[in-house]
Every structure is written in structure tokens, then in C-alpha cells.
Design a protein around this nucleic acid. Sequence first.
DNA 1: GAGTTTGAAACT
DNA 2: CAGTTTCAAACTC
Length: 753
Amino acid sequence: MDTPDRATANNLNPPKFEDSPVFNFLNSLSPIKPVKSVHITQTFSSISFSSPPSVFTSPHVNPNKESRFLRRHNLLDTSKPKVTSEDENQIGSGEEALTDSTHACNNSRELDKKSGKGTSIGDASIEPANEHAKFSIELPQTLKYDSGSPGYDPILCGDEAATGVAGSHEASKKDSVEGELHFHGICQTQQKIDITESDWDNLINNASDMLIFSSPNVSEAFKDLMNKQLDPSGRLSNFMTTLPESSTNNSRIMHIVNQVASGSGHENEDHPPESGLASDTDHTQDNTVNVALVASNPCEKMDDEHVYVIHRGIRRRCLDFEMASVRRNNSDGNSNASSSAAKSDERNTGGDSRRCFLPGIGLHLNALATLKEHGGMKNEKSFSGRQANFPSTASSLLPQEHHLLLGPAPSERDLELPENEIQPVEDCSQSSHMASEDFNQNSPKKKRRKVEIAGESESCKRCNCKKSKCLKLYCECFAAGVYCIEPCSCQDCFNKPIHEDTVLQTRKQIESRNPLAFAPKVIRSADSVSEIVDDPNKTPASARHKRGCNCKKSSCLKKYCECYQGGVGCSISCRCEGCKNAFGRKDGSAGIEAEAEEETEALEKGEVEKASQKTEIQNIEDNQNSALPTTPLRLSRPLLPLPFSSKGKPPRSFIATISGSGLIASQKLAKPNILRPQVKFEKPHQTVAEDEMMDIIQCDSSPMACIKTSSPNGKRISSPNCELGTSPTRRGGRKLILQSIPSFPSLTPGPHH
DNA sequence: GAGTTTGAAACT
DNA sequence: CAGTTTCAAACTC
């Protein structure tokens, strides 16, 4: 297996892999498997991720992902001696892990081979292969966890869990061809991987997990996806994350993922696997091949369709500025030039394209979205309009998907997208851009509270800028690293794909002034994580606003206060006056105290109702804290007007932003990736700032080491449990995860670079 | 929906 | 770095 599969895999990796006879063979075989996997995926997703949206929304979610990942890794290690220390190390970093996973997907064959035949793999096989093997191994664990989780279907879980590592081994045992087939089938349809195909499933599951954890938005989206069948989005995101390593492979993966997402996303939800297969298969199979084609031939219809499809599944703008840069780079490279030095620069970095991507600059997702528009549904509306994207699906889905896309996935995607893909995307995007502009002027004020209505669709930000042209941090969309979309009521908006160059330049300028301008404002320190781990009851105070607030009249009790909005307490760095932040006052008083005060004040002000709610919530939180990890926001918060909703979360923005600063040092890149999804670092209590960020990022490489990240995990975990009221098992599982894997250290971290 | 308040972002 | 202005979100009516 090793030799042939590898060879094929290696060959495949390159853009031309489709050309390889092996690929063709696989393609021919691929159609087979779609059927079962769906079921599994659903159960898995629904079960494991049923957690409440609020939880997911929290940026912290990601940490869990990492934690899981880490765990998996550990488990894998334990379970499978085969995995080399190196592999572990690789896995350790969140991004690396992601990358690996993506590679695994890309090189599913390799994975299968390796995982199944890890022994042989070790040597010659490309690193990715090793990593893949690891993933495959790890995946089982994730499955186990999930299975452990309340939502998990016993049967499936049992199967998967039982198969667990063994499953991966089995898969490895299978012929490489089979593995590929499975892989393709999985990627394409999502559905139906057999347990035997555990490799794939594992990958997917892992990916999904990763995604979920990666960002709050993602988590939500993930939920939806899970409900629907997750696979697509989750896979996407996963793949996206993994992409970085090999652009070509990544591109394939992206395509596949996109296809899957699109196909599954739409059809999967309601349609039986088969139906999904029909359409999906068309896309997926074609896509798999097409991907390669796309790489070679930019802007083919197929590509567009794929992209479009993907976008459909996703939601609109996930733009990462990085993506845009990437696209540009690609386009530049392909056709011409180099539209912007920055782009070229990034691209150059790109020998490790991923790196460039990571740092990324680009609004790619938006571009993709535009592609969608281009393609078929293609309206920006549909595209931009999250809702539009999810015609069939319930509204709930929308946000989630969007989140997924936007949040973790987007950035990753963007980064990951191989140049090949990018080209087509770009082309499409351009056209779309045009359209997008038109849209911009559309709805004057749909905005703001859609998010609230939607639930938390922070991912979907809608700005109302009138003078800033959406090119300043005043603009939430811009600040979040996303393009403005139809729902935005902004005027003279330049934050659109059409003006990508302008956007990028502006971003650069802003970043030059303040490298952290696009970084998450709220950071959770390692302390918080440790606190959570040690004492679930304890509320982590470590989460803090990066710069602190400067409130004078709001008493840090309203969203005017960024700390409050971010769901974190005020810290020393805050210059606020009369701080009464319920999440923690500057003076150090706990949120409870603040609450008490708030209550009194509220009473005074007639806000009694609110105060009571808060107190209740807090009380609940306190009670729950034991169970929950505690994040400032916590599950209970929902009752309160969570600050998250609008800005605090900006998972997306953060994500995009961070990654967005592609030009900026790799550091940022790493940070952003890490931070975004999950946590936003900040000084443990006050001044973690960049240094810590950096540290964290570095730590990212070693997942275990990096525990710092955040409580968010706790939240997520807890929240799902709480909300779900799920079986104890699930809680236990999650708790374990949290404890064991404190933070989400960094799947994504830029460690690669 | 319009107007006000607020504090971050941007500017000087 | 501090002060002022600009800006758009958050909030109120």
C-alpha cells in the first residue's frame, strides 16, 4: 500500500492528481459510499454539537476544539504507538492539526494507507501522510468523545467508538483504493462513510469538532450543520484549516469540501442521502476532478458552480482579507499580475502559500460568495443574504452555517484555498463583486438587530456606516474582516470585493498603525483556562479586554462598553469610571458584586427587571459554574443582553482580521488563527497582550502546552450540556475534555509560520 | 423610525 | 501622549 498509494497520493496532491490513473480509478469507484456516512455524521453532529448556540457563539469554543484535538492526539499516541513524536508535535499545533487533517482529506488515500498501514507510512510517505495517519487515529477518539456526548447516537457512537482507532486501522488495512474511494465518497457526499471508512468519518468528525470549537459562530453553524448533517461545513472548515500545507491539495480539498458542503448543506439537510448524492455526486465527483481542473483552468463553469455551491452551503461573506489577498495572488500569478504588492508578497510567502494565506489578507470568502452569486443562485442577495442562502433550511441554520463559514472556516478556507481554486474564485468573485456593489446600496436598514433576531448571527454583521465608507474600524464589518453585504445599510461602501485592493490597503494602513487593530479585543488568558479546569465553578476572571474600556457614563453596564460587550470584566487596563461591569469590575470585584450594585442601581433607575434577570442569571451561573467552565459570558447569560451579540463576538471579524493581516508578521497570522475562533487572548488578567498572544501562538505548536486559551471551551461544553440537558454521559465527556484539554491552544496557530 | 447617547476610532 | 473630533453602534423615545 505504501508505495502505490503514496505514489498516488503524492501525485494526487499536485493539482494534476486527477490526471493520475489512480485518481481516475478512484473516481470511478468513489460513487459507492455515500449512503451510510450521512447517517453517522448526523448523529454525530447532532449529538455532540447539539450544544446551545449561545455556547458556540462564544469565541471560546475553539479552545475546546483544540483541547479535543489534543486529546485525540494524546489518545492517538497512546492508542497508536505508530504515530511518531513528530506527528504529535505537528498535531499539537491547532493549525497544524487542521492542516494535517485537511491534508488527510486531501490525501485521503494517504490517510487510509497510512492510517491503515501506518507502519509502512512512517518513512517515505510524506509528512502529511504521517499526520494523516495520526488524524485518522485521532479521529476515532474524537468520535469516542462525541459518542460519549449525550447527543451521540448510541449505535453510531458505538460503532464509531468501537471502531475508534481500530476503525482507522481497518481503514488503513483497506486497500488504498478503497480508502480513496471512501474518501471521495465522503468528501463528495458527506454522507455515507461506512464505519469501515472510519478514516474519513474520523476526519470529518474531527474536522467538524474542530470547527465547532473553533469559533462560536462556527459552533452554531456546526450545530446546524450537524443537524443537517454537518459534514459539508464541518468538512469544509476542517479542510480549510488543513489546507495551508499544500495549496494544491488544499485546493482539491476545498473543492471537495465545498462541493460536499454545498451538496450536503442543501440537500443533506432535508434530502435523503441519496438525493443528496445525486446532486452532490455530480458536484462532488465532478468537483474532485474539477478541482484539479479548476486549478489548471481557472474560472470554469464547473468551478464556479462548485464555488457557488459551496457558498450556498456556507453563507456569505466570510471574507477574510487574507482570502482576498490570496485570490489576488492567484489571479495575479495566473493571469498577471500582481495587483498589489502586498498580495504578491503574501503570495510569495507562499512557497508556503498557506503561510501567506494565514496571514492572509483577504476577503476571499466574500469572493467565494460572489462566486456563488455568479454561479447560480448567485444573487448576492442569496449569497449575502444569509437567509437567502438557506432557503430550504430553517433560519436557524443560516446563522450557523454562516458562522461556520465565516468563523473558522472562512479564514482557514481562505488561507487554505489553493491558488488554483482561487483563480476561478477570483474571476467569479470579480463579477460577483460588481454585483455585490449593486447590492450594497440596497437595503437601507435591515440590519442591526437582525442579529438579535437571528439569534446570534454575529457572523452576519450589518453595518450602517455613512461616512467611513466602511473602511475604518468604525465599521463593524470592516473591523470584523468581512465584506459588507446586502443587509448592510452602509453608504458609499468600499468594503466590497470590488474594492478589494482598497480594502486591503486600508487594512494594511490600519494595521501599520496598530498591528492589533484587527485582533480580538477580548482575550482570555491561560489563567482562565486553568481556572476553569481547576475549578469549574470558578469564574475565570482572566478574560479581559485587550485594551480596556474607557467608559464614563455607561458604568460598563451597557454595550457601549467593549468589555461588557465582550462579556468580560473590566481590568486594570480599563480607564472606566464608575465601573459596574457585571462580568467583573475594574477594581477586581467579581461580577456578582457588580451585580449587586447593578441591582441597586437598577432598582434606583427602575431597571429592576433587568437587574433581577442578571442576578438570576448570575445565580444560575454560579450554580452552573460548577458544571460549566465559566466564561464570562456563560450559558446562562443568554438571559442577559449578552454583549457578544454584536461586537464582542466578532468571531469572524477577529478571525478574519487576524488572519487578515497577512502582510503583517506571521505572528499575527498565528495569533489570529488561534485567537479568532476560540478565544481571544488577552493578558491573563490584564495585560497579556501581544506577548502572550505570541506565546500562545508559539505554544500552539504544542497543543498540550498551550492550555492558556480559554474558558470558552468550558462554555461550549457546559452550555451544550446545560441546554441539552443531555445525558450525564455527555457532560462527563465534555468535562473531561475540558479538563484534559484545557484550552484550545491552537489548532490554527500560525506556528507553521 | 427618528433622535440621543455613548465611547471607540481617528485625527491633531 | 493628550486632547479633540469623527463616527457609528447602542440606546431611548
